[in-house]
Amino acid sequence: MSSFFAVLFVVAAVVLVFGLVRKIIQYAKTPAPLKIATTPAPVTQSGVVLRLFREVVFFESLFKSTKWTWIFGWIFHLGLFLVLLRHLRYFMDPVWLPVELIQPFGIYGGMAMVVGLAGLFARRLFVDRVRYISAPSDYLWLVLLILIGLSGLMMKFVAHTDVVMVKQFFIGLYSMHIGELPPDFPLIMHLLLVVVLMLLFPFSKLLHVPGIFFSPSRNQVDNPREKRHLAPWAKAMEEQQN
């Protein structure tokens, strides 16, 4: 079983990384032929960095829009962020001090994550407008993430798993050494679901993660009168017509 998981994780990691890199290259290479920043917009590059920072860290636009979605969405993402930081300890030896320090907060993060996701699920179910726009996959993503969160929390609060073994397994993968995984149900669940998440990430709406950094309405400097903004294809058209 451990070899099965070893192969799965290597494949999932490759798919995740290459899938995302492929999309990022696609976004970066596709020209944005016109200035379409949603104004009022920053007039300097540093202003844009600040705008994206507020957007990514605080979900500024969502805050303007609807407070419930913002609260649940933000709690979930913040929780997930803390959880990811906490999990770094399974992938490094020795463990960095900041990762050491974040450990207890990671637990709260895990709980917050599940609470936020439950809120988002309820909203998807009970607000008729959101229900209308939801495809089955939209519910399934929430279920997947909730199950990942719950199975993870189970290992902390219900049935402990030998995390030292888990860590040895993942560190071992770096040197192509396949160690043993503890044969605990919550762990197997947890790992399987994470693999599914990693495999589907680059082919799903989770592309909002790289997407926001490439969103022209958010990442453009508002300076069209000062600078021409000619895309390569537009330039070619110009040369052909002139």
Binding site: Y27, S61, R123, R129, S215
Partner: peptide, 15 residues
């Protein structure tokens, strides 16, 4: 780029 990114990125949050 707007079209490609916007078609991919919507999470159906309802905002």
């Amino acid at each position: 780029r707007s079209l490609q990114v916007y078609l991919d990125s919507c999470v159906k949050c309802g905002a």
